[in-house]
Design a protein around this nucleic acid. Structure first.
Lengths: 263, 263
DNA sequence: CGTCCTTTCGTACGCCGTACCGAAATGATC
DNA sequence: GATCATTTCGGTACGGCGTACGAAAGGACG
């Protein structure tokens, strides 16, 4: 008998376990030594660590310390750091209060965008996730489903729906990034980061050339950098743009049907 | 005599060196041993490493190996990894062919957006930079100046200009992220990542519930996920939205002046 | 009790960034 | 040419990281 498992292994178990952890809740077997925690406790500890210190502070040792446990104990709950982050993301997305089916599209999309906006402000570490795609997690797909649903019954084509939803997501992410940056700069005014801050602001005197950057200087003097990023109004403008496209799609759909009828 | 430097240190030299490295080209002193490289060589090596392997592969040892040199030798050119990344960003931004002053706003903003779009596709690692703000680097500020300049002479307020530019930036980043994700998935079809890929796609059969996600299923069946992210058309729509706001600002400006004249 | 299964976690390996410091190399000065 | 000042080069080392491995511990069953 070989030392390799002789059973059928059609796929590498890494990906399977990664997905199973997200989609099949791990039932704790009654046999063997009692676990001190459940999976959700580990995920919660990870979020706690990420909330102060960001994703770069999320080390297995730190999370384990948060639980008062050795680092390697985490590996009975989670295959590794990447999977823990997936679970954290899924749990965070679970906080979203998503628009239900049947709402008017504009109210639904508005709620969708606002919910993400608040989620990012509540969990800035979500924006530090470095991977290119969002994980295939239940609550993540729930959110995507709800987002697509807001526009799917409009005259827009499916491709347009996907595009507009991506546009809304990008906008919310971008504005949230700016807001978080501003908040962190504001928060770093205390501490000994004070001299850091004065150093950075001294940049404007030592190196910034108002002749090279006249427009930035004008915008700065107008105070537009401080009060920018008004999420509410920008979102409204974006929804206006969507509304315009819907109206255009409706008229062209009428034209098409008239065209078909005239034949 | 204390071992601390007794000279006047009005600010921590960390930040000063960080900025000086970006704004004052380091003049190689004629004295002492000849350096094997110039700063730009180190930066270029960093970009080479980041281009295959991404930012997470950018270790000092790896960059040093790229130059055929010991790891610690890099520290004579660069204070640390963070500053190296700043320099890499500045160099990448230097590749932008920015719209010149005096162009019509729509052509200029169009060029601005397309240039960034291509820059992100050429340097995906730019989107992996984790910090909240973009570094205070010359070419970065050049780009921001050019971006603001495209709209500053329109009837929009300074705040609106900042907001719209942020919107364009967010959109380009979001779409580029999607395009890169798609490209990487497509590229991972070779190799032994093949079974990984089949595993991931098997998700759709093992766990995906078409009853739970009817809209996603419909959109998928319509093929809208494959051909989404049409950068060109989405950019045009966004520019349309800007144009609408400009037109609205113009009429309200007229109203204001008429209002002032009627008094 | 023994048996078995599961969790716990100490140890270790190979990465990482980088502090420290001696060695080597070079121009400036005598 | 000899010496010195200055600069680059890079080995060694420290603490931290993710995690593979395997021994120890503990609870459920015979």
């Amino acid at each position: 008998m070989a030392d390799d498992d002789p059973g059928e292994v059609p796929r590498p178990p890494d990906v399977v376990r990664r997905l199973a952890l997200l989609w099949d809740p791990p039932t704790p077997s009654a046999r063997g030594r009692r676990p001190r925690f459940v999976l959700a406790d580990v995920v919660q500890a990870g979020i706690t660590v990420a909330l102060d210190g960001g994703l770069e502070a999320l080390s297995m040792r730190r999370v384990a310390a948060e639980l008062g446990v050795g680092a390697m104990s985490l590996y009975t709950y989670v295959p590794g750091r990447a999977e823990l982050i997936d679970l954290m993301i899924d749990r965070a997305y679970g906080e979203l209060d998503l628009p239900v089916a049947g709402m008017p599209w504009r109210a639904a999309l508005d709620q969708y965008a606002r919910q993400f906006w608040q989620l990012y402000l509540r969990h800035p570490w979500l924006l530090q996730t470095t991977s290119w795609r969002t994980p295939l997690a239940p609550h993540v797909l729930d959110a995507e489903e709800a987002g697509l649903r807001t526009l799917i019954d409009t005259p827009l084509t499916e491709t347009q729906v996907v595009d507009f939803l991506g546009l809304v997501n990008s906008m919310v992410q971008g504005l949230a990034r700016g807001a978080i940056a501003e908040a962190q700069e504001r928060a770093s005014s205390g501490q000994s980061w004070d001299d850091y801050w004065t150093s950075v602001s001294s940049f404007w005197q030592d190196w910034f050339d108002t002749d090279r950057y006249p427009v930035m200087t004008r915008v700065w003097n107008a105070g537009a950098f401080e009060k920018a990023s008004d999420f509410e109004s920008i979102l409204e403008r974006l929804l206006d743009a969507v509304e315009g496209s819907i109206a255009r799609a409706r008229t062209s759909a009428v034209e098409v049907s008239e065209d078909a009828a005239s034949r």
